[in-house]
């Protein structure tokens, strides 16, 4: 089996475009087991941030939201709608206005 696959390597190597180079040593793959950071940051703003903190941190950390540029209320509404309708975020309809209010005050300089 080993001999046959070596022959195949050579045969294909000869036919390959110059773009390709053949890998030399067979790689040894080792199992991995890591913990990925979860993100410990909350949305600031006390009570005004309750709705976003309670609804939005299950699927993603706060960081990327807080690094978005200044967006209009309509743009933020569209983002929240996309999270609910397309990405199925379980956000109660009554919490949406408070989340959009919070987001529309964020961003930029």
């Amino acid at each position: 089996m080993r001999g046959r696959s070596l022959a195949l390597v050579i045969a294909i190597g000869a036919a390959a475009a110059p773009l390709w180079a053949l890998a030399q040593a067979p790689p040894q793959l080792k199992s991995v087991n890591f913990d990925l950071p979860v993100g410990d940051r909350m949305f600031p703003g006390d009570a005004a941030a309750d709705a976003i903190n309670n609804n939005c941190l299950a699927c993603h950390s706060a960081g990327m939201v807080l690094t978005q540029p200044r967006l209009s209320r309509a743009e933020w509404q569209a983002e929240v709608d996309k999270m609910r309708n397309t990405y199925k975020a379980p956000v109660a309809a009554e919490d949406v206005p408070a989340i959009v209010d919070y987001l529309a005050k964020l961003g930029g300089t």
Partner: peptide, 18 residues
């Protein structure tokens, strides 16, 4: 530098990682 197998990186988002 808090992500496994990664050196110093610019943190755009922790979870899911960017």
């Amino acid at each position: 530098t808090g992500f496994p197998q990664k050196g110093a990186m610019i943190l755009q988002r922790t979870r899911p990682p960017l």
